[in-house]
Nucleic acid binder design. Structure first.
Length: 621
DNA sequence: GAGTTTGAAACT
DNA sequence: CAGTTTCAAACTC
């Protein structure tokens, strides 16, 4: 607790930092700010369609996301806890890697609170600890080179330094970052998220999440690894002998298990510690999740539809296994799963009971749904990946073996095949794979269907020079920002209801969005809005007054008209337009009727279908 | 599969 | 804001 004596010590120790230019810089940074979740009244517009994930900033349904805590990412490296931990770790144990990673982890968490700095880092001067950290990170970086190619498959594209950081994962990232910290600015790139990345709206990026899982599995560097999972609400990670945990509720706990110290930085904060046995917990929980998925405990389609690019596995939310990812998708496929894990509250309780026992891992791992992709990838490849990992010294392949053991007679291949089928089905339902063929846009413009839909490109895509991949997450985000700056609604659903009630939107018999309309309308000139060049037609909605099309024959039914009367179904817009088209009326009417029937029967676009499915589900709630 | 058409997106 | 260019999907052969 904050006794006067402790405060006095803190104040004295803090002076060690004040002289540091680094600290001065940090001190000038803006404080961390919580991000308010979107209002629920955005549901109708956001849940549907191609609305992006948390990676993107467009409003979206937040039903399954814990809105209690969101962190706005700051592009700064926090030097408070990292230095402390590194200093302690270097001094006390060979678990240097943990310390380095902790350095990265704390980036998001602590915004340089002097009191914390003072309390925790009494053992070494700030500069000394920092230099130790840099030295350590450098040495570790050199030792990690061989792992990079295994961690992620390289893109054919050369990567810039920024991407390189993101690709290589936390260690190199951290090392580079640390070096940069000392050499020039303290700018900490938000995209270098190998170790930890939290995103706005409280999710963790795919990249960060998967790396987090790697670390949970202890895969990266065998014995030196610590269990680590990240959560915007609750970060906890540990090493021996130092155990270190950070809570977002203004607390930092440092536990020296050998009994030397236990520093409670902030009064009232729960003490959360993890140790290496957490790896066992991770493995067990992942295995459990694998089994559960096969027994049907998968998230509903509704959840999937809401969680697009980055699925979030929040505290209090349902648990969703993060599926394996194909190596061609840039990220490791092993251990790319997170499973049932208790809430932080449960974590606290468990850890209090016995920190040497299996410690639950805090949840909230985000994942791009595209990681579901590539169900066709053979399990042999996955196995090969595992073996490769093993050859590279990734010790905890148990994380993949666990489901095999748990399957009682079902082979690994069968298990994977079953899972892949399910993933494939889910993928099809969501229409997640756009299979773009972009050549020049780098898949970072709205030309790219994948990008426009808030999806990463995946293996089925035949795009060239693609940057719309998790390893280029920074670029994706930036591209997104640029586009949204130009048009804030660029990523908004293109089809929205014109009705007040979502229930009205869905014609159960005809599967028709009776009141759905393209928000911006089309501008077709030659296609008559009867080909898929026309976005209205593509989305399965009729042209409306929003459209500026010429010779429109996409005579959809307006909200007050009935579907059965196909021949009568003429929109107001069409009436005006049809005045220009009387010469071709007879043949066109036939086409129009076909179009209407088609529209009434099926929303051909997966996006539109998904959108309406979401609306229908919403109406059922 | 190559070439053409089309309209949205991007650019000026 | 309008005109032009770029782009990738849709379409045709």
């Amino acid at each position: 607790m904050d006794t006067p004596e402790k405060n006095r010590i803190s104040a004295v120790s803090f002076r060690n930092f004040e002289d540091s230019p680094v600290f001065q810089y940090i001190n000038d940074l803006s404080p961390i700010e919580p991000v308010k979740p979107p209002r629920s009244d955005n549901i109708l517009h956001s849940l549907a369609f191609t609305s992006p994930s948390s990676l993107f900033s467009s409003p979206q349904l937040n039903s399954y996301r814990d809105s209690r805590f969101s962190i706005k990412r700051h592009r700064t490296l926090d030097l408070s806890s990292p230095v402390v931990v590194i200093g302690e770790t270097v001094k006390n144990s060979p678990d240097a890697l943990e310390a380095v990673k902790i350095t990265g982890l704390s980036e998001e968490q602590l915004k340089c609170r002097p009191a914390r700095l003072a309390n925790v880092s009494e053992t070494k001067p700030f500069k000394e600890q920092l230099s130790l950290a840099i030295e350590l990170a450098d040495s570790l970086k050199n030792g990690r080179e061989g792992c990079d190619s295994q961690m992620v498959s390289c893109d054919e594209e050369p990567m810039d330094a920024e991407n390189e950081i993101g690709r290589s994962g936390g260690l190199r990232e951290l090392s580079d970052e640390l070096c940069r910290q000392t050499n020039d600015s303290l700018d900490f790139d938000a995209g270098s998220d190998g170790v930890l990345q939290t995103e706005e709206m409280g999710t963790v990026s795919v990249f960060g999440a998967e790396n987090a899982m790697l670390e949970v599995a202890g895969i990266q560097n065998s014995e030196q690894q610590i269990p680590k999972i990240t959560d915007p609400k609750f970060y906890s990670f540990a090493s021996e002998p130092l155990q270190f945990s950070i809570c977002c509720n203004n607390s930092v706990n440092v536990v020296e298990p050998r009994g030397s110290c236990s520093v409670q930085i902030s009064p009232g904060a729960p003490e959360i510690t993890l140790n290496r046995s957490s790896k066992v917990a991770a493995i067990a929980s992942i295995a459990e999740a694998e089994c559960k998925e096969d027994t049907g405990l998968q998230p509903s389609r509704k959840q999937q539809s809401v969680r697009r690019r980055c699925l979030t596995f929040d505290v209090g939310g349902s648990h969703k296994k993060i599926p394996l990812r194909d190596s061609t998708n840039d990220l490791p496929l092993h251990s790319a799963s997170i499973s049932k894990a208790p809430s932080p509250q449960e974590c606290l309780e468990t850890s209090k009971q016995d920190t040497d026992e299996i410690i639950p891992i805090p949840r909230t791992i985000g994942l791009h749904l595209n990681s579901f992709v590539n169900p066709s990838v053979s399990s042999d490849r996955k196995k090969k990946k595992i073996n490769d990992d093993r050859d590279l010294g990734y010790s905890d392949v148990k994380i993949m073996e666990a489901p095999e053991r748990s399957m009682e007679g079902e082979s690994f291949d069968q298990h994977m095949a079953t899972k892949n089928r399910k993933l494939s089905q889910g993928l099809d339902e969501l229409g997640s794979c756009k299979r773009c063929k972009c050549r020049k846009s780098k898949c970072l413009k709205l030309y790219c269907d994948c990008f426009a839909a808030g999806l990463y490109c995946v293996e089925p895509c035949s795009c060239q020079n693609c940057f719309n991949k998790p390893i280029h997450e920074d670029l994706v985000i930036k591209a997104r920002e640029v586009i949204e700056a130009r048009n804030p609604l660029a990523f908004a659903p293109k089809v929205v209801s014109t009705s007040d009630s979502a229930i009205d939107l869905w014609d159960e018999n005809s599967k028709t969005p009776a009141s759905a309309r393209h928000t911006r309308g089309c501008n077709c000139r030659k296609s008559g809005c009867l080909k898929k060049y026309c976005e209205c037609y593509m989305m399965g909605v009729g042209c409306s007054s929003n459209c500026r099309c010429m010779g429109c024959k996409n005579n959809f039914i307006h909200k007050n008209e009935k579907c059965e009367g196909e021949s009568d179904a003429v929109t107001i817009n069409d009436e005006a337009k049809d005045n220009d088209d009387h010469a071709d009326a007879s043949s066109q009417n036939e086409d129009a009727s076909k179009s209407e029937r088609r529209n009434c029967v099926l929303l051909q676009s997966p996006v539109a279908f998904r959108s309406l499915a979401s609306l229908r589900k919403l109406s059922e709630l």
